[in-house]
Design a protein around this nucleic acid. Structure first.
Length: 401
RNA sequence: GGCGGGAUGGGUGAGCGGCUAAAACCAGCAGACUGUAAAUCUGCCGCCCGACGGGCUUCGUUGGUUCGAAUCCAACUCCCGCCA
């Protein structure tokens, strides 16, 4: 249940090692595909494993509502239920406090919320979140935290952070199983001093690993980077550092450079299902007309199952028709891309050339074209303005920024 | 042969005197998605321009009524029912 670090990059904070868990070792740095409802959408566990995934992330909130923690417990725990014999990490449900905001009401005792499925009312305490995760039986469980939306309002962010610290203590007190690792979560939004305070408070409690939460939720990239760098520096060197919810290829590589060992994100699998595919030159949208008759793999030289066997034109066609195979093939490609990227990055750390590997990757990988994105947003905004210009009636959706 | 109903932008299809360059959906063109309420969502989608605005041409065809017509009237052309 511990992290062993075997290699360090001399120029950056990147490191490579092995994380041992009750269900096997995980070479780090690593990326955990997201299996929110005990399934990596569109893939069998065999495929996920063949793609090189070593550890999966599942979600307590979703499994609590459906099928119910007791059902999974009765069926032998999460590993058996979803037929994933390797390591599993469960999120506590704290993120849903943020992503389902209209349902929530947080107090020091816990969160009162309405089910997004049937509207029924529930109250989850930090102690309950731990109890549920012990019943699910993941190898790594997460403290119950409050992840506030990105905000310049220091008071709000601080309040959520203080509550997260209080909850963290309750989580540790409530924990009974000794064969599971529990990770604490640092909050503090985009405020460096709050982040530092949070690191102090959380590390003082003594967790098995430390997560950085509340980032990549819409804040400017500079803030994300600054927060990751500052926080990571202060976290204990001998424990796993987990950057929650990240993410994109460039964010992962940058995170590794700052000393992150573990990532998870729904991004690769979700954008895959929406036709967004990673290539080493950046993201491609396979639905676009340009791929209509392209008789070549989506990415030349990619050795994933999808690229080895199908043309971009075929993928394009499957997406146009909403054929179910589209979602599997696209997910395979994106997970292959991210998992391979992380594996190669790890190798570069071991081989001692991480810095140049990182530079080479970032030089060719083009994140989404900012100009196109901004012009789209500008159009939408102009329309919005025109709509409410002389009416005087303002809509709640008016504040898109 | 007689009696009804209908023809709307790429498609389906609302509108039935001004608020209508014309709903909605589909198709099409782009974009977003980071601890997954997501196989979802957003923008554009007649033509032109100096584009948070302005101009032009549209609702089968032609001709009327009206300050004003996709909307009312007439004729014509096609379509679809029903009766002989």
């Amino acid at each position: 249940m511990s992290l062993q670090i075997n290699h360090r990059c001399p120029d950056t904070s990147a490191r490579a090692g092995t994380l041992s868990t009750a269900h096997g070792g995980v070479p780090t740095p690593t990326f955990a595909p997201v299996a929110t409802q005990a399934s990596v959408k569109a893939l069998t566990p065999e495929t996920v494993s063949a793609l090189g995934a070593k550890i999966l992330l599942s979600n307590t909130y979703h499994l609590y509502l459906r099928p119910g923690i007791d059902i999974i417990e009765k069926l032998g725990g999460l590993h058996r239920f979803m037929n994933w014999p390797g390591p599993i990490l469960t999120d506590s449900g704290g993120y849903q406090v943020f992503s389902l905001p209209h349902l929530r009401e947080a107090t020091d005792e816990g969160v009162r919320f309405r089910s997004h499925i049937d509207g029924s009312e529930h109250f989850i305490t930090p102690e309950a979140a731990i109890r549920f995760q012990e019943a699910l039986g993941a190898d790594i469980i997460m403290a119950f935290d409050e992840c506030p939306p990105y905000s310049e309002n220091r008071g709000e962010v601080e309040e959520a952070m203080v509550r997260t610290h209080l909850w963290a203590e309750k989580c540790l007190k409530g924990k009974q199983r000794t064969d599971q690792a529990i990770y604490g979560i640092v909050q503090g939004g985009g405020f460096g001093d709050l982040r530092r305070r949070s690191v102090e408070a959380i590390t003082a409690l003594g967790f098995d690993g430390y997560a950085i939460g509340g980032l990549s939720i819409g804040e400017p990239k500079e803030i994300t980077n600054a927060m990751v760098a500052d926080t990571t520096r202060l976290l204990p060197d001998d424990k796993v550092r987990y950057l929650m919810g990240v993410g994109s290829p460039e964010d992962i590589v940058n995170g590794i450079a700052r000393g992150i060992d573990l990532f998870d994100s729904a991004l690769p699998t979700r954008i895959a299902r929406n036709g967004g595919l990673f290539t080493r030159y950046g993201r491609k949208i396979i639905r676009n007309a340009a791929y209509k008759d392209l008789d070549a793999p989506l990415e030349e030289g990619c050795d994933c199952y999808t690229c080895r066997n199908f043309s971009a034109a075929y993928l394009h066609h499957l997406f146009r028709c909403k054929e179910l195979l589209a979602y599997s093939l696209a997910t395979i490609h994106n997970l292959h891309f991210v998992l391979t990227l992380v594996a190669e990055t790890r190798k570069s750390i071991i081989d001692g050339n991480f810095e140049s590997f990182k530079q080479a990757f970032l030089d060719t990988y083009e994140p989404t074209d900012e100009a196109i994105r901004l012009s789209q947003m500008e159009k939408g905004r102009a329309r919005q303005r025109a709509k409410f210009a002389d009416g005087g009636e303002r809509s709640d959706e008016d504040n898109i920024d």
